[in-house]
Simulated scan of single mutants.
Amino acid sequence: MGYNHSDVNKNIGSASIMGGYVYRGSTDPCLYGRYLYADLYASAMWTGTETPESSGNYTSTLIPFSCSKDSPIPCDTAAGSPLPSLGYIYSFGEDNNKDIYVLASKGVYRVVRPSLCSYTCPTERRELSEDWSCPHCKAKRKAEQKILVVKAPPVLIVTLHAYEFVSSTETKKLEVNVRFKEMFNIRGFMKQRRMESNTLYQLVGVVEHIGDPAGRARYISYVRANKMEGPKQHSSESKSWFYASDGHIREATLNEVLGCKPYMLFYERVGD
C-alpha cells in the first residue's frame, strides 16, 4: 500500500504516511476490516483492503471524509478543497470499544456513524423516527433499523437507484459516480459473519444506462467472457471482458469496466 507524495501536496512536496489501525469497531460497519491510514498533511485518507482474505495482498482506496454535523470542534473547509481543515495528522488511536481516533494539530477526531457526515452505509444502525411496535411484548419500543444479508447467494445482483421523482409524471436521472471493485467481500454485510465461510465475490457483468429517461436512452453491457480458473482467478488484469451494445461487441479492459457508471452489477461467488 502507498501513494505518490507529490500528488498529495504539489506545492510543499513530499509528505509522510501516517499509519493507522484495522477498523474493528461497530460504529461504521462499512469500514469494518479495513486498514485506515492518512497523509501527514491531512489532505487525503485511504483504506487498505485485503483481497482475498488471509492472502497478504492489499489494495488501497482513497476515501472521502468530513466532519460530523454534531462535531463539538469547529470544522472549517480547507482552502480549495471540499475536505475539512484538520491541520496535520500526527497519529491514530484506538479505544477499548475499537473506535478509531485521528490525532490532528487542530484536535482529536473520532470515526462516527456515516450518516452524521452525510454518507450512506446500508448496514449502519439507524434509530427509527417512531417507536417500533414489538410483536412479542405488544408495546412500543425504541429500536434501530438495518439491512443485512442472511445467506450468501451464488450470484449477487446489485441494482442501483438511478432516478428520482421530481413530480408525479417526471423523473430525473441521478448523475452520481459509483465506485465499485472487481472483488467484493460481503462478510461485513452478513447477519451472522461466522456462519458463511465463503463471502467473496467476483464481478462478472455490468449494465450501464446511457441517455435520459425520455425515450432517448439505451443500455450497454460489460460481460466477463468466461469464468476465470487457476491462479489468475483473483487477478485484476483479466483480459476476458467484453463490451456489448445494440450493434457492436468488442474487447474491453477491466479499467474501462470499473470506470463506467453502473445501473446493475452482477457478482459471482468465488469457488462456486
Rank of each mutant, 00 (worst) to 15 (best):
R126M: 11
Y23Q: 05
C137L: 10
I249V: 14
I157C: 07
R34D: 05
Y243M: 07
M45A: 09
R218K: 10
W46Q: 00
Y243E: 02
G93C: 09
T49C: 05
N177P: 01
Y58W: 15
Y222R: 02
C260Y: 02
R113L: 08
T169L: 09
V257N: 01
M1C: 12
V111A: 06
S245M: 08
F92V: 02
G20L: 01
E256R: 08
S115F: 08
D7E: 14
L62R: 07
M195Q: 12
R24C: 13
A162Q: 14
T49K: 09
M18T: 08
K151I: 13
S238M: 07
A225V: 09
P262N: 11
Y32S: 12
E144R: 09
G13Y: 04
G13E: 06
Q233I: 13
M45V: 09
A78V: 03
A162N: 08
S221H: 06
K191W: 15
E127G: 12
T253L: 07
G80W: 03
S81T: 00
D272Y: 10
T169I: 10
L156C: 04
K232D: 14
M195I: 10
F189R: 01
N4K: 08
K172L: 15
A252L: 06
E237P: 03
V155W: 04
T199V: 06
S85W: 00
D272F: 09
Y41H: 03
P52S: 07
I12T: 13
E229L: 14
M228F: 07
R218W: 05
L116W: 08
V176I: 14
T120K: 09
F180G: 04
L40A: 12
P153M: 01
L254N: 03
Y88D: 01
G247F: 12
P84T: 01
M18I: 13
C260D: 03
R125G: 12
H5I: 05
I186L: 02
Y201I: 01
G259L: 06
